[in-house]
Structures are given as C-alpha cells and as structure tokens.
C-alpha cells in the first residue's frame, strides 16, 4: 500500500464530512466541490453570504469553508452572525488578503482557521480535516496513544513499547501536535503555525528536518514506522 493510498484510506477512516462552501466565484466553487466530493465528502455550495448564512443556520455541517469577499454579506459577518446564534460549526476562512492583520481579524470574527488564496487543495483538505468537529475531541485527553507510542501531556514524557524516549521541548510539542491529530494529514505550514507560532510559508525544508529528527528518535530500533510522509501534502502519524 502506497502512502498516497493510505492518505485517502485514512480520510475514509475518519468518515465523510458534510461541508458547506460559501464562495461566489463559480470556477473556484465548482473546483472545490468536485475535489471535496472526490476526497469522499459531501459538499454544498452557496454563492452569496445571505444564502450561505441561511444554509449554515438551517442545516448541520461539519465544516464551513467561507470566502471573505462575498456578495450580499461578507464572510466575516456570516461567521460572526452564526457565532452570535450559538452555531459553533468550525469555519475556515479563505481570503485573497494575506496580511497578518487580516488573519487576526478573521480569527476574531469567529473563524477557526485562515487560508490565503491561492492555496494547494492538499493544504485545505488537511486543515478542514483537523477542524472537523467530530474529530477534534482530544482536548481533554492527557494521554495520546498511537500503536505502542504513548505521550503523557501532564508529565511531558514519551514512551514507545514502555521505553522512555528523551525529546527536546520543541520536539515534544511537535509530536504532541502530530499525535493529537493522529491519522490526519498535517502540512508543514500547519506545523510551523501550531508548534512554532509563525504563520509564514517556510520556503525551505526546515520543517522536514525537524520531522526527520523526531522520526529517528521515535522509530530508531523499532520495526513499524509511525510518522509517515504524505507526498504533496505533509505528514501523518499513524500506527
């Protein structure tokens, strides 16, 4: 089984999501809908802010993908409106505006993640996977497990097959994030955002080197690989 294959299998494993795409550009909306359906999800499309708001309010979605600039009602207002009505469906904001400040505004309006156009579909897919409300139930857990790998969030220790593995603080945070989203693809930018708290595009393979260091620590001396590279997308921790 190729890694590419496992990536798709895994999405099926997480179950198909019901996604609402609020995007006024016909081509972009159709492309997104097609790609999401191909990835095994159900996608509805609203072409303006009002329609999007009514749909999101009336039906139950797992994730919303909201363009910022929309006719009739802008994306941030749609999300803020939903939040005001107690609707907490995770929302990913798509925007052509890439300034740090725009992302801050988007997140303040109640958005859960922010992606600047143009984007790679793999990046978007990985991000909505992580946002999926049925998947994000690990907040309260103090112990993450993947196969024989264990991470204790309270004592900050990592064990594989009962043997303790010593990690640097940053390596611990990296593994914690990967295990928290075990079975899901995480991209390099997601790692830079969540582990280093920087939101720029790492131009070189700086993240890859961190991941391979971590990989050698948790896989050295063990047969079964845990930390997989998903080509064209990122990484996935899966037993």
């Amino acid at each position: 089984m190729s890694l590419q294959q496992s990536f798709h299998d895994d999405i099926a494993g997480n179950g198909p999501m019901k996604i609402l795409v609020i995007e006024d550009d016909r081509e972009a909306a159709e492309y997104l809908e097609k790609a999401l359906v191909e990835a095994g999800h159900t996608a509805h499309v609203a072409r303006d802010g009002e329609t999007g708001f009514s749909l999101a309010d009336a039906e139950s979605y797992d994730v919303l993908i909201v363009d910022r600039m929309l006719p009739r009602r802008d994306g941030l207002s749609v999300i803020a409106g939903l939040r005001a009505r107690g609707n907490e469906t995770p929302a990913l904001i798509l925007s052509a505006l890439g300034e740090v400040d725009d992302r801050v505004k988007g997140l303040r309006a109640g958005g859960d993640d922010y992606l600047t156009k143009p984007y790679a579909f793999a990046e978007l897919l990985a991000r909505i996977e992580v946002l999926n409300r049925r998947a994000t139930v690990r907040d309260g857990e103090t112990m993450y497990r993947a196969g024989d790998l264990e991470l204790d969030r309270l004592s900050h220790t990592v064990k594989r097959a009962g043997r303790e593995i010593t990690l640097q603080p940053r390596e611990f945070r990296l593994l914690e994030y990967l295990m928290r989203h075990g079975g899901q693809v995480v991209t390099r930018t997601m790692l830079l955002e969540n582990v280093w708290d920087y939101h720029f595009d790492p131009q070189t393979n700086v993240i890859d080197v961190h991941v391979s260091r971590l990989r050698s620590k948790i896989e050295k001396g063990f047969d079964k690989p845990l930390l997989h590279t998903v080509r064209g997308a990122g990484y996935m921790l899966k037993a």
């Binding site: 300034e99 400040d101 280093w196 393979n205 700086v206 080197v209 961190h210 260091r213």
Partner: peptide, 23 residues
C-alpha cells in the same frame, strides 16, 4: 495595517535559531 506589539527580539532570535538548527 499590520498590528504592532512589543516584540522580545532575543526570544525571536532564539526561536529562529532553534527552527533552523537541524537544517
């Protein structure tokens, strides 16, 4: 319109060095 806040430059340097050290 980027927001500005107090930035501890020594921390930024440490972060970046730590980020690039493996590379």
């Amino acid at each position: 319109a980027e927001e500005t806040t107090p930035v501890a430059l020594d921390q930024t340097v440490r972060d970046v060095v730590e980020l690039y050290e493996p590379l």
